[in-house]
Structures are given as structure tokens and as C-alpha cells.
């Protein structure tokens, strides 16, 4: 798998996708990360609060039942920079990851999973009562 690298500060940092992270529009960021290819719905579970009291730290868990999933990418649609992270999976990992993200305002949280059977996405709205400095 291409994402599995041996040397740290070499490959992984060099491959940091600057254009995607710098993008200020969700549609553009999503298109960059998904490489403009077809994205279907399903096979992803987003576990996030429906209401977040503190937008500076919203706990999320993203899981997928897709076999041989290669990566999980996370977006917050209305953040100033919507692309949050990509986690690169491999056969040694369970296909689930927990993180805490910043949300400036009420927004959809979007997860994109790449797998040999294609790309899939899911979204969930999180209502933010006190925004975080995203």
C-alpha cells in the first residue's frame, strides 16, 4: 500500500497535501482529496455529538465496514479551511479512528473513505453552540 511508509520525516511530511489543506471552500477541498472521482454514499459510521457545547474540541469517531479501506478523510463543511485530516489505514488496523476537531459554527461533518471497491462518503450535522477558533 502506498500510504505505508518506513521513514518518517521523509515521505510522510513531503506528501502533506498542501493544496487540499489550504483550500477555503468545501467543494474544492473535497474534489481535491477525492481526485474528482465518483463518490457513493454508505459504509461509513460517524459518531459525533448532535450538539457540541464547545466547538474548539468536538470528539468524533469515524468507522467503516469497507474491506481493505485505504484511508479516511475528514471535513467540516463550514470551517474556514474545511479539510481536517486524512488517516491512512492498512491491514494491521481496525477501520476506526477517534479525533477531536475544531468547528467554527454549526456545520456538516463529512467523512470520505477510499477503498478498492470505490470511494464512499457520509455526513452528519453537528450543532455548535459555542464556536471554536478554526
Amino acid at each position: 500500500m502506498g500510504a505505508l511508509m518506513s521513514g518518517f520525516s521523509g515521505n510522510l511530511l513531503a506528501q502533506w497535501p498542501a493544496a487540499s489543506f489550504d483550500s477555503k471552500a468545501f467543494d474544492e477541498a473535497f474534489s481535491l482529496v477525492s481526485a474528482g472521482a465518483e463518490v457513493k454514499e454508505g459504509h461509513i459510521t460517524i459518531d459525533a455529538p448532535q450538539i457540541a457545547d464547545n466547538g474548539a474540541s468536538v470528539p468524533i469517531v469515524i468507522s467503516t465496514d469497507l474491506p481493505e479501506a485505504e484511508s479516511i478523510s475528514i471535513f467540516v463543511e463550514k470551517n474556514p479551511r474545511p479539510f481536517i485530516s486524512t488517516i491512512y489505514l492498512n491491514d494491521k488496523l481496525e477501520s476506526s479512528v477517534s479525533l477531536r476537531v475544531k468547528m467554527r459554527e454549526t456545520s456538516d461533518l463529512i467523512a470520505l473513505v477510499k477503498s478498492p471497491s470505490g470511494q464512499f462518503m457520509a455526513r452528519q450535522t453537528v450543532k455548535v453552540t459555542a464556536g471554536g477558533c478554526a
Partner: peptide, 26 residues
């Protein structure tokens, strides 16, 4: 895990201060 890479991730500025990360290794 025992010097073999099990996970890589790229982060942007949208990850919260004092980041938390959890996952499971088979």
C-alpha cells in the same frame, strides 16, 4: 508497533489544540 509503521496521518489546522488520537491495532 515494534518499529513497524501501523498508522500514518496528515493533519491540518482543524485538529483541536492538544490533539487526541485513538485507534485499534489488530
Amino acid at each position: 508497533l515494534n518499529e513497524e509503521v501501523v498508522m500514518d496521518t496528515h493533519w491540518g489546522t482543524g485538529i483541536s489544540k492538544n490533539p487526541y488520537l485513538s485507534f485499534q491495532i489488530k
